[in-house]
Computed example of a mutant assay.
Amino acid sequence: MIRVLVVDDEFLVRTGIRTILEAAGDIVVVGEARNGDEAVGAVIRLRPHVVLLDVRMPGKDGLSAASEIGRLPDPPKVVMLTTFDLDEYVHPALRAGAVGFLLKDTPPLEIAAAVRTVAAGEAMLSPSVTRRLIGTFVERGPDRAKLAHDRLAQLTDREGVVVQAVARGLSNAEIGRELSMSEATVKSHVSRALAKLGLSNRVQAAILVHDAGPL
């Protein structure tokens, strides 16, 4: 079972998401929280696999909570809940370690699918959304590009190719088919690349590749 923590200051939102997820059969909502402080404590206490975290909350907001959760040992996957597509909080949330974002009016089946996706270690953003996010929010200058190039240079050729595919929004299965690798081998390359780069998720890797520009 995939263990989920739902964090939102609105009771009806939390209840609705809980109802949707628990109807999926393979997902259990282990707890709810109303703000960022409660969220961090609940993560430590309940050890969820995935946290659905509202961006805007009174007290400690979702961005601060995401950053704090990301610094915990073996942190869960964090998906930000937002009301507006590509609002101004999305990119800072990804920088803070979130693996994606979910609109609150997302259809129920897609919410459950998103939870399964991130629990499996994949980014929750489609290629088109990844490109829109990166293109909208990342500003690349010469210094930033050089720093990104230098960081990517530490990867092996194979790891570099895999990370470039990650930046295009491909899943492990799609990368495997494209590069004639098993999905397990792709996952291993991605894990090693993220560790070398000091990154916590695939979206951050995509942003780094965009920062670097053409290799």
Rank of each mutant, 00 (worst) to 15 (best):
M1Q: 12
I2D: 00
R3P: 01
L5E: 01
V6C: 05
V6K: 00
V7N: 01
V7E: 01
R14S: 01
G16D: 01
I17H: 00
R18Q: 13
R18E: 10
I20F: 09
I20C: 09
A24T: 04
A24C: 04
G25Y: 08
I27H: 07
V28K: 08
V29N: 01
E32D: 11
N35D: 15
N35Q: 09
G36N: 00
D37W: 07
D37G: 12
E38T: 08
V40E: 00
V40F: 00
I44T: 13
V50K: 02
L52C: 00
D54M: 08
R56C: 06
R56G: 01
P58A: 03
L63H: 07
S64D: 14
S67D: 12
G70L: 01
R71F: 04
R71E: 14
L72R: 12
L72N: 10
L72V: 12
P76C: 06
M80S: 03
M80I: 12
F84S: 09
F84Y: 15
D85L: 13
D85A: 15
D87I: 01
E88T: 11
E88A: 15
Y89R: 15
Y89E: 07
P92H: 08
A93G: 05
R95K: 14
A96D: 01
G97E: 04
G100V: 05
F101E: 03
F101D: 00
F101G: 02
L103E: 06
K104N: 02
K104V: 04
D105N: 15
T106S: 12
T106G: 08
P107E: 09
P107D: 06
E110G: 07
I111D: 02
A112V: 05
A112D: 00
A114E: 10
A114C: 15
V115P: 04
T117G: 05
V118I: 13
G121M: 07
E122Y: 01
E122A: 10
A123M: 11
M124A: 15
S128W: 11
S128F: 12
T130K: 11
G135I: 07
G135R: 10
T136P: 06
V138Q: 09
E139R: 14
R140P: 11
R140H: 11
G141I: 09
G141K: 14
P142N: 09
A145H: 07
L152K: 04
A153T: 06
D157Q: 14
D157Y: 10
D157M: 11
V163T: 11
A167F: 09
A167S: 14
A167E: 05
L170Y: 13
S171E: 03
N172E: 11
N172T: 12
N172W: 09
A173F: 13
G176Y: 09
G176W: 08
E178H: 14
S180G: 12
S180C: 12
S180T: 15
S182L: 06
S182P: 06
A184I: 13
T185C: 06
T185W: 04
V186R: 01
R192L: 10
K196R: 15
K196N: 08
G198T: 05
N201S: 10
V203K: 00
A205K: 03
A205Q: 03
L208N: 06
D211P: 02
A212P: 04
A212N: 06
P214Y: 05
